[in-house]
Design a protein around this nucleic acid. Structure first.
Lengths: 189, 189
DNA sequence: TTGATTTTTTACCATATGGTAACGACTTTA
DNA sequence: TAAAGTCGTTACCATATGGTAAAAAATCAA
């Protein structure tokens, strides 16, 4: 079942038989998080690669007494402090469940070890490439769009994000205060 | 000689014999660009992976009648429209030489083909991962630092950037106008 | 339900940055 | 050398967003 999700997610890149994905899935462990539960605390090194089956999570960076959200993750996407997973260094990033969430996770060392097998290697390569493209898109938006335009783009990308994620988190992702987001939302009518 | 540069750049990840790097280097072609020469025009798909031996380049995105610089590349670093190289789709990104630059390049299809060999695969994997980490750092700076702080960080990262790169390019990289950068520079004393 | 806590909204003023314009310095071209 | 263009600087005002504060609304806990 997990093998099927993985196969469906990555078949467009690499057509491997379901057995190969099942073998990969052997190393995956299901784990559930409550809303607001910390998946990876700041100051630590990321030990797992997570994949969200149901629910959502955010990658946060604490700044003074506030925080900014660097990214959201919803169903069928990876969710971890990927920078720390790659470098094995501790970071100040914090991963938090934003809803009650069902995930599967795989130990970092197993993730890297499986990277030497064909399907594991494709997952690692495509995860790195997709993560880069995603980040570059975010950088382009931050450099070329207004806060309001970024908000509209985010709503298009995740159509029900307003119903699922607190405004303060969306505001911090957009790089503005909750007050400014409130102003933007209420001006638009 | 190129093989040695490649080996030096990637040996920390993967200790391959110089012969393996020489084999990889066989597919590389040297090419020189004049200052302000367009390496990859907007609206096209990236055909090459470039590596800068000497000089510098910038990745630009045109916005109305202005442009923003998404990244600088100097000696011993990759430089291309990596997003387009990966997706094979045309993008609006433009790569421009900012000084007279000596580069080596490798055809996209050869790059991907060599990715199936051990050293090629390590280059592709590590390039993707390093590009992601780099982009996430930039995103963090854009979300948590002021324009002045970002300028100081950039100066630390590339100590002689003020002497090598036009202020207007630095300003656009920082997400501000040249006038604002001028104000920041002259206020700091 | 009731009270406590958190989140969102609104209002006020402050500030960083944008946009336009003009000027001088520098660079390129003829 | 002169002319033309580009670039960096400065000044002015405009604007988007920040910061503080407090009320209103929503959520959570007892």
């Amino acid at each position: 079942m997990l093998a099927e999700i993985l196969k469906k997610s990555f078949d467009k890149y690499f057509n491997a038989p379901i057995e190969a994905w099942k073998e990969f899935a052997e190393f995956c462990e299901p784990i559930t998080f409550e809303k607001d539960q910390i998946i990876k605390p700041q100051g630590t090194s990321e030990k797992y690669f997570y994949f969200i089956i149901k629910g959502s999570a955010g990658i946060f960076l604490w700044k003074e007494n506030n925080f900014v959200c660097l990214d959201f993750a919803f169903e069928n996407s990876a969710c971890c402090d990927y920078m720390s997973l790659l470098t094995k260094e501790p970071t100040e990033l914090e991963v938090v469940a934003l809803e009650k969430s069902e995930t599967i996770r795989i130990l970092r060392d197993n993730f890297h070890r499986l990277g030497r097998k064909s399907v594991g290697q494709i997952i690692m390569q495509k995860t790195a490439e997709a993560s880069f493209v995603e980040k570059q898109q975010q950088q382009i938006e931050l450099l070329t769009k207004t806060a309001e335009e970024r908000y509209r783009i985010l709503q298009t990308k995740f159509p029900n994000i307003d119903q699922r994620i607190a405004q303060k988190h969306i505001a911090s992702y957009l790089g503005i205060t909750p007050q400014s987001l409130s102003r933007i939302r209420n001006a638009a009518n």
